[in-house]
């Protein structure tokens, strides 16, 4: 950029740079040359010249502004070290911080604090997010896990979004990595976009903020706990052609896993269930020493 900038401006700048130091004399030279040749005594205002210069300035200014806006428009949606959350450029995005990695079983339910949820404890099996269009509402616990992998979930109210509007959303999602579309019964707005820790509710499938939201947050390395995680589900037990159904009723407060993860199967609990439980039954008095005891039986 700069090398060309310089060569291009060299000819024009030859006089321009000098004129910075002595604008008066320089102006005089230029004006003198053109005007003295025409009519020295009268000196009419050089309107033609002024108009020409003005035209050039406006044109160049326009080009400059256009180029700047174009570069800026493209760059501002790209997540980077200096722009970790491009969705800050979008009006109406709700943000919340959630801890990642808290898993529940297929039988458990999470008492989500948002509807639709966009973070928090979730099922061990993630929903397929490889550009999947779900015709039926899917269990929240699976959808939230797919958000953790960096996908964007477009939820819509099936009573309000149908026909052409629904086709638009389907065309946007189908076959496109890290996108999911599903109906969400009784959604309080026609459309709701979810990314991990981010939500944007909208009224129209034509809203340009849908694409901006996807640009900003899909696979965003700074906002998603596990960007690039798999969207394919084979081997996990999740069947995208027959996904676990959405449950409209609020979960039972006593048994539901809380947003802080209490009741979730975290690693320490998995250890308790998987490793320490059997020794506890056989050696009930010293559960914490069961491992060393097993490795050194002669000492006892």
């Amino acid at each position: 950029m700069f090398s060309l900038y310089e060569t291009r401006s060299e000819t024009g700048m030859a006089s321009g740079t000098k004129s910075k130091g002595k604008p008066k004399s320089k102006g005089a030279v230029k004006g003198g040359r053109s005007r003295s040749a025409m009519s020295r005594p009268k000196r009419p205002k050089p309107w033609g010249m002024i108009a020409a210069v003005l035209a050039v300035v406006l044109l160049a200014g326009g080009v400059f502004t256009y180029a700047f806006m174009q570069i800026n428009e493209k760059e501002k949606w790209i997540a980077s070290e200096d722009n970790k959350d491009p969705s800050e450029n979008i009006d109406g995005v709700v943000r919340k911080e959630y801890d990642s990695g808290q898993h529940v079983t297929g039988e458990q339910r999470v008492a989500y604090d948002q509807s639709p949820p966009f973070g928090g404890p979730h099922d061990q099996a993630w929903a397929a997010c490889s550009g999947v269009v779900y015709d039926r509402a899917v269990r929240n616990e699976n959808m939230v896990h797919a958000l953790e992998h960096g996908s964007v979930w477009i939820a819509y109210n099936p009573d309000e979004i149908k026909g052409g509007a629904l086709d638009k959303l389907k065309a946007k999602v189908e076959g496109q990595p890290y996108l999911m579309l599903s109906p969400y019964p009784d959604l309080d707005r026609p459309i709701s976009l979810q990314s991990w820790g981010h939500q944007l509710k909208l009224d129209s499938a034509d809203d340009t903020r849908i694409d901006d939201f996807i640009r900003s947050l899909r696979e965003n390395q700074y906002q998603n706990p596990e960007p690039g995680g798999r969207c394919d589900v084979d081997g996990t037990g999740f069947d995208p052609t027959n996904p676990p159904p959405f449950v409209a009723e609020a979960p039972d407060e006593k048994t539901a896993v809380k947003m802080d993860g209490s009741g979730a199967i975290d690693e320490s609990q998995q250890e308790q269930n998987g490793q320490q439980a059997p020794p506890m039954t056989s050696v009930p008095a010293q559960p914490s020493q069961s491992a060393p005891a097993a490795s050194t039986p002669p000492s006892q």
Binding site: M1, F2, L4, R8, V63, A67
Partner: peptide, 15 residues
């Protein structure tokens, strides 16, 4: 004008 033309040219080239 000269600066703008140079700058605009440079930005277009960057693009």
């Amino acid at each position: 004008a000269v600066l703008l033309v140079g700058g605009a040219g440079g930005m277009l080239l960057t693009m």
